[in-house]
Design a protein around this nucleic acid. Sequence first.
DNA 1: AAATTACATTAGAAGCTTTCTAAATTATTG
DNA 2: CAATAATTTAGAAAGCTTCTAATGTAATTT
Lengths: 138, 138
Amino acid sequence: MKNGRTYAEIIDRLRQAGLRPTRQRIALAGLMYSGGDRHLSAEILHGEALRARVPVSLATVYNSLHQFTARGLLREIVIDGGRSYFDTNVSDHHHFYFENEGRLEDIPAEDVVVAALPKAPGRTRISRVDVIVRVRED
Amino acid sequence: MKNGRTYAEIIDRLRQAGLRPTRQRIALAGLMYSGGDRHLSAEILHGEALRARVPVSLATVYNSLHQFTARGLLREIVIDGGRSYFDTNVSDHHHFYFENEGRLEDIPAEDVVVAALPKAPGRTRISRVDVIVRVRED
DNA sequence: AAATTACATTAGAAGCTTTCTAAATTATTG
DNA sequence: CAATAATTTAGAAAGCTTCTAATGTAATTT
């Protein structure tokens, strides 16, 4: 039984994030948090919602994904053109990118050691360091 | 006087890459290699070509960018949605991404030390490790 | 150097993901 | 329960990229 999976927990999460727990957001969050860490595109999540008989519009899926991201419930990842993916794992970690399949997979933070980094230029500060390990099969 | 800047050198490079040195490709490569390492979008390069009185179509710019990338003359980078960038620096290095401006800047390979990496899963092998240091100003 | 052949370029249409718009609906507050 | 503010929605629009098929150009052959 993982965190945030029951109906009441999901509603709590949404409220804590400052989002009204609407039917659509509850359903989308429920799907997102079903089955471990996931990398979702808007289209995939929309499809799952429809299949689960939750008639939600694609616009709402996009709205929700962005709101969830802004509130720290998701993390957006863009690797290859076109499509954005949203990672339900928002803790510190990195990614494998399977070039053949166009698929992402998490790498636990402790499996990657970045021993040296340049300092942030000008008056900027580092907000995150992404490591993408690109792998291929051929 | 940097590498690959004269007309003859550009033609050589194209030929070595197995690409016919057409008027358009020569002009685009010339622009790409003018002024150090660059991060170019199709639209920017197209604009520069037109301003330089080289009437090239946007489709050709896209074709050329992809051919150059496939032949190792460019490296494609996708950080944020929508647009692709092409890096004229194809040697081993990493990137700062300025979240406020949506701009990329090279980090020399030696300024980043990745001391530990997971092994490639299944029968894959690592084709590249990208490190993106996201910085912001606020 | 002309003819042939293979490759490249092009304008415009089409495709795909994402965002916008303005109207209708729903959650929350008083 | 009424009033208010936020949310959802369908469809249009936008933005970048790719496709199509007709035309042009470079390379090769004669």
